[in-house]
């Protein structure tokens, strides 16, 4: 696994990760970060816990491919993807995408691209505990549409 792609159960600290991304890099002029967090309401129901399952091995491979593709399409100085797995509670952080470039446009666009591809290509699955029991979260058409706009 590359140092810049991590799948982990433990939480992450945004400041620490951004500092690591920028360390010693005076050529970086823009850093964009996206943090995904657990909502307490999904599709009208209260969510007590969220369980993140993944496909060990393929997940890291898919995330590295997405990151490589972002570096191919935009002028990035560095980037980082962290995704948590296991049981999570509302308000917990799930995912961090950070992109660093000389000028802001590359970092902004690449961060969106990475998230859109991650949501449709990386093998993670969410299971929610609601008052009615467990349910697997359905994939959204809007996520598929968001990823399709980056088709070359």
């Amino acid at each position: 696994m590359s140092d810049w792609v991590r799948v982990q159960t433990e939480d992450f600290d945004l400041s620490t990760e951004v500092a690591r991304l920028r360390a010693g890099r005076a050529d970086i002029g823009a850093v964009v970060t996206f943090v995904g967090t657990v909502r307490d309401i999904n599709q009208g129901d209260t969510v007590a816990t969220l369980e993140l399952e993944h496909y060990p091995g393929m997940t890291e491979k898919a995330l590295n491919e997405i990151r490589d593709e972002a570096h191919r399409r935009w002028h990035l100085e560095n980037s980082l993807i962290i995704h948590r797995v296991g049981p999570l509670q509302p308000q917990d952080q799930i995912v961090l995408v950070a992109t660093a470039s000389r000028h802001r446009q590359d970092a902004f666009e690449a961060a969106q691209f990475i998230m859109d591809y991650l949501k449709t290509r990386a093998p993670f699955w969410k299971k929610e505990q609601t008052p009615d029991g467990h349910r697997w979260v359905d994939a959204r058409d809007s996520d598929r549409a968001a990823a399709e706009r980056w088709a070359e």
Partner: peptide, 29 residues
């Protein structure tokens, strides 16, 4: 579906010892 941790399709060939995975649409992020 995936074969050896790469997205696959019904016509993807198999080899001895292949790792084949079946799963629903992904919902991470």
């Amino acid at each position: 579906m995936a074969v050896d941790q790469t997205v696959a399709h019904r016509d993807t060939p198999l080899r001895d010892g292949a790792e084949v995975a079946f799963f629903p649409p992904v919902t991470g992020g």
